[in-house]
């Protein structure tokens, strides 16, 4: 799915200048926890987050996140925008909640990052011991 379609679906706006709206993302992740973003995404993901500090951009760079959408009408501080410009990561804005922003994009056909061993192993174990 390209950013142009995503912007239309979430009625969003671009924050950084000269965003390549034809940029293709292949899956999505919604999280405010940066370690979760690192652990549960793949290269080529679009990140939806309510966190706006510069660490979001760094996390995106490290994890190979293609674009970041700030949800709940949040607008990032200048430090974040400057870093995003330097790292070449487009920033978008959505007035909807994290749930609705993700939901709209997911319903339009963008898949999630899937299941991860780190998540399922822990999950199975937890239910085994409680039985």
């Amino acid at each position: 799915m390209i950013l142009r379609e995503i912007l239309k679906i979430i009625e969003g706006k671009t924050i950084t200048k000269n965003v390549d709206l034809d940029l293709e993302v292949s899956m999505g992740c919604g999280s405010d926890l940066m370690s979760d973003v690192l652990a549960f995404t793949h290269e080529g993901t679009v990140l939806m987050s309510g966190l706006t500090n510069p660490q979001v951009v760094r996390t995106a760079e490290i994890a190979g996140i293609k674009a970041i959408i700030f949800v709940r009408g949040k607008y990032p501080p200048q430090k974040t925008i400057d870093l995003a410009k330097e790292k070449g990561i487009p920033l978008l804005a959505s007035k909807y909640t994290l749930f609705e922003t993700c939901g709209r994009i997911f319903a339009a056909g963008l898949p999630s990052c899937g299941l991860f061993d780190l998540a399922t192993r822990q999950w199975e174990d937890r239910f085994k011991t409680s039985e």
């Binding site: 405010d32 926890l33 940066m34 370690s35 979760d36 973003v37 690192l38 652990a39 987050s49 966190l51 500090n53 660490q55 979001v56 996390t59 061993d117 780190l118 822990q122």
Partner: peptide, 27 residues
Amino acid sequence: QPGYSSAPEWVRSMGFGAGMGLPNIQA
């Protein structure tokens, strides 16, 4: 242990300290 954290609020407010750091490195 995934999820174990002793992080203070200011670390959490930056999106870290959710107890995933070391498990993530291991993964």
